[in-house]
Design a protein around this nucleic acid. Sequence first.
DNA 1: GAAACCACCTGAGAGC
DNA 2: TGCTCTCAGGTGGTTT
Length: 270
Amino acid sequence: MPELPEVQTILDAILPLVRGQTIQGVSLLWPGVVDRPTPDLFCAWLQGRQVLAATRRGKYMLFHLDDGRCLILHLRMTGELRMTPRPAAHHPHDRLIVHLQNGQDWRFKDQRKFGRVYLVEEPAEVIGKLGPEPLDAAFSPAYLAAALAGRGAAIKSLLLDQRLAAGLGNIYVDEALFRARIHPLRAGGALQPDEVAALAAAMQAVLTEALAEMGTTLRDYRRPDGSTGAFQNRLQVFRRTGEPCPSCGAAIRRIVVGGRSTHFCPNEQK
DNA sequence: GAAACCACCTGAGAGC
DNA sequence: TGCTCTCAGGTGGTTT
């Protein structure tokens, strides 16, 4: 489940391998992976283009091309990026292969077909609704308090909304709420100023630590070289149902909030 | 406008 | 052993 730390880790690894490379061709193995434009235009527009740079926004990876267009990737649940020498046999889960001038194949593999690619002139049409990056200066307790004001939905659901803050997913929301000692079902607008401040700090801390650990590997996430992240060893509540809370020893509980598995300590989180 | 719900999708694991 | 069912979850669209 690639979230901000996983996406940044993948981007950091893949960028040196694609920057400056010219795209010789594209093999679209599953057209449904292309969100826009049409699959035919997607392949035609990529042909001959050079990758100039890459950036991340939330869970999206943006590859800036020499014609001004932007190739945007979202890995969703099970997407992976790999670089392999050409020729190489297709994996059944390969959805898109970009053939680079240096003889390498840049593969977008996605078991569950949730991942999407976009090729656009204006990235804002894809990422324009995203909220601030939690690790940027624009994200502050004051911003978070304003964003939560008047909201009656569960804080867990609100933190998963990428319009509020871009980059958190199920894992890091559960971990941040535990660190801030906030119950996931609390209404966002009901949090006190000190709780909002603790939550903002917790969100930033958990993401910073996960970045340092190269992300969390539970099952599907792999770095482009096939290696795993290490933050799964530091999870305190996520997928630890029934295990003792690392703080008080109470059994970690699992509930469903907004259709998502949610893990918390019933004793510590109020 | 906000909140809740659902579809998309496939493989792992549980249950029988 | 093999079949069926449930579950996992990010996003966008639809419904309430």
